[in-house]
Simulated assay, not measured.
Amino acid sequence: MAEQHLLTIDNLKVHFKTYEGEVQAVRGVSFHVDKGETVAVVGESGCGKSVTAQAIMGLVPAPHGRIVDGQIVFEGKEITAMSKKEQLEIRGAQISMVFQDPMTALNPTMKVGRQIAEGIVRHHRVSREEAHKRAIELLRMVGIPDPEKRVDHFPHQFSGGMRQRVVIAIALACQPKLVIADEPTTALDVTIQAQILDLLKRLQKEQRLSVLIITHDLGVVAAIAHRMVVMYAGVVVETGSVQDVFSHPRHPYTWGLMRSLPRLDGEKQRLVPIEGAPPDLLHPPKGCPFAPRCEFAMEICDRQMPEPAVFGGSHQAACWLHDPRAPRIEELVAAGRQTE
């Protein structure tokens, strides 16, 4: 019998009401995370990756935001069917989140030790003294020097990188099974980014954590993830192992992402931007949302969203170019449409 996925997202749809109408931010997203693996969700700003993370955590802002369809199943239990009280019991204890900006994630008026201890007291029902000791251990584990003294400091007394380590300590306080990291290195300089990624990798291996990392940075994906999910305009366009997607990308949007990535090997090459802009999700297209920006688009692309084509293992891409009836890429290039 196949091992059950730790987290399964099936046909998730999240909408937001605005003065102009209803924004369809997430439009049928499906993927899974297994025990002990790191999955990266990649895409441009506004593609729905952070909203997906909010939905998993039960943090879609009501009443304007709502899950209109789909299931989020964690360890066989459907989160979307739970009451608010049941979701609170899971949030922080079994699923936790590392937010993008550590300065806004932390309460500036509270000592960091108390902020770490809060979740431990709530979920583990221990005394404040025991929780304080655990907070010191967590600060030591995430690499903060002199944790016995630093536990009584306020967030403004830490550097940006150290604040992010505190946020990670809070996320790990209750020994969760899944950590969602939403752009955890965006606000940090390159050297500190590398340190935070190394820390996440080490903790993931030592504690056999599952990590879902939300990012637009393909360098972060290459450094930390086992599998990746590429999102565009609220849908998943490609998914597979990092090696498969980086070595043999199968969707034109993924090709565009790879061409815009600077390379350190070989000759210098000019970066190629993806021309155009994402579609308006107040009125999303019927077909492939990338079609207006795709140099290989065909008539069917505008009319109908393709089913994912499977390339072996977990590698899939939703593109009409992989339909047996479609012209070959070589033919399209010969007709004047380029891949480079």
Rank of each mutant, 00 (worst) to 15 (best):
V220W: 10
R263T: 15
P279F: 08
D198H: 12
L282F: 12
E238F: 06
R293K: 04
P292N: 05
C294Y: 11
I300H: 02
L264G: 00
L282S: 07
A194C: 08
V230N: 06
L281V: 03
R250W: 02
D280G: 03
L197G: 08
L257P: 02
V220G: 06
V236C: 07
L257N: 09
R202C: 00
D244H: 06
M258R: 14
E238T: 03
P278C: 07
R270K: 14
H283C: 11
V245L: 03
A222F: 05
R259W: 01
L282E: 12
R303Y: 00
A194M: 10
E206D: 15
Q269D: 01
P292F: 03
I196S: 03
R263V: 15
Y253M: 09
H283Q: 14
H251D: 13
V237G: 03
K268M: 09
I300K: 15
L281A: 09
R293I: 12
P285A: 15
C294T: 10
I300P: 11
L218G: 11
Q269L: 04
H251T: 11
L200Y: 04
L282H: 15
C288F: 13
V242W: 09
R250C: 12
A223E: 15
P284W: 12
T254Y: 02
D265W: 04
P273E: 04
L203G: 02
G312A: 06
V220C: 08
V237Y: 06
L257S: 10
I274L: 11
T254F: 11
G240D: 12
C288I: 13
A291I: 02
P278G: 08
P278L: 02
K205F: 00
F290W: 09
P306D: 05
R208N: 15
P306L: 06
P285L: 15
I214A: 13
L282G: 13
V235P: 01
V229Y: 02
W255V: 00
E307F: 01
P273D: 01
L212S: 08
P278M: 07
G313I: 06
G312L: 04
P279M: 05
R259C: 05
S210L: 05
H216G: 05
R303V: 00
A225R: 08
V242H: 10
I213P: 00
A291W: 06
V221T: 01
P289W: 04
Q243C: 00
P284T: 09
L200H: 05
L199W: 07
Y232C: 13
D302S: 14
P292M: 07
W255C: 00
P306H: 02
F296Y: 13
P289R: 01
S241I: 02
H248Y: 13
L261H: 01
P252I: 09
A194V: 08
A194T: 12
M228E: 14
I224V: 15
G312D: 05
T239C: 10
V237R: 04
